Simulated assay, not measured.
Amino acid sequence: MQDTVAVALITSLSTLAAAALTGLVGALSTRRQLAHQLTVARQDSVERRATRRDELRRNAYVGFLGACDQAYRQLDRRWLEAGGGDPVPGYDDAYAAMRAVDEAYNLVLLEGPEDVASAARSVLTSLTTEYADQRRFGDGLGDAAVSLRDRHRERWLAAIEVRTSRRISFVDAVRPVLDRDG
């Protein structure tokens, strides 16, 4: 009878050991799967944040360029309008366009990075300088029938050159920021 009890005890212990081993293997496997799922979820979250940041940056940069285009159009109108010391129609439009560039610039500052913000600051500075030049030239005495462009041709050409180079510098700073794969 002792042999039977011993066999039963050994069988019970081996069954318990097998069950414990199976439970341990299952727990380790589940732990590994959960760790993998957590890693995948974190990576997905990081990618979503990066995609969202890229979208916000792209929108800020495109908005800034669009505001600059509108300001350029208003400045071009002022260059082409004839007038002397009297207020020129469209002056308020030019001022409003400059304020829109300021607002778009604030978004670029928030979204960064610093090299893009610096390039945007250069664009804004050139626009502000051109706008101030137009006001100064428009307030000066001169033939009211002759446009600012014709009265100040060298300054107009210089302003167009500065516009172009600053805009290109801004776009060159933006491209690597938006091109994560490149």
Rank of each mutant, 00 (worst) to 15 (best):
L80E: 11
D54I: 06
E130R: 01
D54T: 14
V40R: 12
E111S: 05
M98K: 05
R121I: 02
L124C: 05
V101C: 02
Q70A: 10
A50R: 10
T125S: 15
D54M: 10
V108G: 00
A120K: 02
Y95A: 13
D102C: 10
D93G: 14
Y95Q: 10
P113E: 08
R99T: 15
A132Y: 05
L127V: 07
A50Y: 02
D86C: 07
S126I: 04
A71R: 05
V101K: 06
T39H: 11
V88A: 12
Y131I: 00
R135W: 01
R78K: 09
A97M: 05
D102A: 11
T129C: 06
Q74F: 00
G83I: 05
W79Q: 07
G66L: 08
T128F: 03
A119E: 06
H36F: 08
T128H: 01
R52V: 12
T128Y: 03
S122K: 06
A100W: 01
M98I: 09
D44C: 10
A67H: 00
G83F: 00
A117C: 04
S122T: 09
A104E: 02
A35F: 05
L107I: 00
D44N: 15
A120M: 00
D92E: 15
R73Y: 02
V116C: 08
L109A: 08
Y105Q: 08
D102G: 13
V123C: 07
A132Q: 12
F64M: 07
E81P: 01
